[in-house]
């Protein structure tokens, strides 16, 4: 294969645009983030269960909890978008429908992340 590459390409050691593995890598990176964050979120939810409104509000408002929740909602919607993208690529074979669905999923995931982030920030800063 190296015969097909120019001497400059060999010297630089670069392949194509280096974007081929981007989806794979971001999906794995967000997966690692979520593997760490999910047990903590489950703990937070179980902790909030026996609290009333003021207690739950105060729990989420704690800086560490608010920051980790922000990280969680960004990672979860990013990961969801990447996963749903592959599902749509695999099962929707009509070009037009696929494009519309992909954009729709991206919009919804962004809205979900933005709404959650706004809620967490509003709680953290005190209404």
């Amino acid at each position: 294969m190296s015969d097909l590459r120019t001497p400059l390409k060999n010297a630089l050691g670069l392949g194509s645009a280096k974007q081929g593995a981007h989806h794979f890598l971001v999906q794995r990176t967000t997966a690692v983030a979520l593997a760490l964050l999910v047990p903590w979120v489950v703990w937070l939810v179980l902790e909030a269960l026996h609290l009333d409104y003021a207690g739950a509000h105060a729990l989420v408002a704690q800086p560490l909890n608010a920051v980790l929740l922000l990280a969680f909602v960004v990672a979860v919607f990013w990961h969801a978008q990447l996963g749903l993208q592959v599902v749509i690529e695999d099962y929707v074979h009509t070009k037009g429908t696929q494009v519309v669905l992909q954009i729709l999923v991206k919009f919804l995931c962004f809205l979900g992340a933005a709404a959650s982030a706004l809620a967490v920030i509003r709680i953290a800063l005190g209404r």
């Binding site: 409104y53 989420v60 909602v73 979900g112 709404a115 967490v120 509003r122």
Partner: peptide, 9 residues
Amino acid sequence: LVAVLLALA
């Protein structure tokens, strides 16, 4: 989850 967070806010 989004609904719970928005309700809490």
